[in-house]
C-alpha cells in the first residue's frame, strides 16, 4: 500500500522585507496508512509550518509533496481547496465551529457547502459521527451551547465527515482541560484504530505524543527523530 503522505526535501523560507527566515530545511516525512503520528518540537521549531504545508494551506519554498498518491504541491489554489475538502481533515486548537449552526450542521458543512445543500444522507452521516463522538444528545444544539470539550469533539466529527485519508490536528487538546483532553485523545485513537485513519498531530505535549504510534521531532527546521512505535 502506498504512503498516505510522502513529503520530500520540504523547505520553507519566509521573507520579511530584506530579512529571510528559513523555517524548514530538507524535511522528509512519510506516513503510512493508519499511522497516528505526533509532530513534536519546541515553539518556533517549524511544526505548525510543516502541518500547514501538508494541509495545503501553505506552499513550500522547495521540495515535493504527495498525498494519497497524488502530487499536490503543483496544484492551483482551487485544486488545493478541492483536495483539502475531499482528502484532508482538520482539527485545530480552537474548534472554530460556526456559531450560527447546530452541531449536526457544523459536522455536515464540509460536504454540504460544495454540494450546494445538505442532503438527507449528509445529515444522517453527520448524526452518526456525532453519536460516535458521544454527542448523540447534543446533535441539534447550537454550537454556542456546547462546552469546550464538546465543541472539540464536534470538530473531530467534522474532520471525519468527508472520509479523509489524512487528518491533521494542530494542538487539538491545547485549549481543553485535562478530562476533556483525555476524551479527545481517546476519540482520535479510537478513530485511528477502527477506521485506520492516518493522523498527524502537531503538539508540544509529551503526554499527547506518548499516546501516538509514532513521534516526529522537529528541531531548528529539521526532522531530528522520526521513529518510535508505541
Amino acid at each position: 500500500m502506498s504512503a498516505v503522505l510522502d513529503a520530500r526535501a520540504i523547505g520553507m523560507t519566509f521573507r520579511n522585507g530584506d530579512e529571510m527566515t528559513e523555517v524548514l530545511r530538507d524535511v522528509d516525512l512519510v506516513l503510512e496508512p493508519g499511522e497516528l503520528a505526533a509532530l513534536l518540537g519546541a515553539s518556533g521549531s517549524g511544526k505548525s509550518t510543516l502541518l500547514s504545508i501538508v494541509g495545503l494551506l501553505l506552499r513550500p519554498t522547495t521540495g515535493s509533496l504527495e498525498i494519497a498518491g497524488s502530487r499536490v504541491d503543483t496544484l492551483s489554489d482551487a485544486e488545493r481547496a478541492l483536495f483539502r475538502n475531499q482528502r484532508l481533515g482538520f482539527i485545530f486548537q480552537f474548534h472554530h465551529l460556526l456559531p450560527d449552526f447546530t452541531a449536526t450542521e457544523n459536522v455536515a458543512f464540509p460536504a454540504a457547502a460544495p454540494a450546494g445543500g445538505m442532503s438527507a444522507a449528509m445529515r444522517s452521516r453527520a448524526r452518526e459521527l456525532l453519536a460516535r463522538v458521544g454527542l448523540a444528545d447534543r446533535m441539534d444544539f447550537p454550537a454556542t451551547r456546547l462546552s469546550g470539550g464538546q465543541k472539540q469533539r464536534v470538530a473531530i466529527a467534522r474532520a471525519l465527515m468527508n472520509k479523509p485519508q489524512l487528518i491533521l490536528a494542530d494542538e487539538p487538546t491545547g485549549s481543553l482541560d485535562r478530562v476533556a483532553a483525555e476524551q479527545v485523545l481517546d476519540l482520535m485513537r479510537e478513530v485511528n484504530h477502527e477506521d485506520k485513519a492516518t493522523f498527524l498531530i502537531c503538539t508540544h505535549d509529551e503526554k499527547v505524543a506518548a499516546r501516538c504510534t509514532r513521534r516526529v521531532m522537529l528541531k531548528d527546521g529539521r526532522v531530528e527523530q522520526a521513529l518510535q512505535e508505541n
Binding site: G55, L82, R84, P110, P114
Partner: peptide, 16 residues
C-alpha cells in the same frame, strides 16, 4: 474572519 478561515481550510471555495 476565523469562520471564513476554517471554511476555506476545509476546502469551501472562495466563490461560495
Amino acid at each position: 474572519r476565523s469562520e471564513i478561515g476554517i471554511m476555506r481550510a476545509f476546502g469551501v471555495s472562495s466563490a461560495f
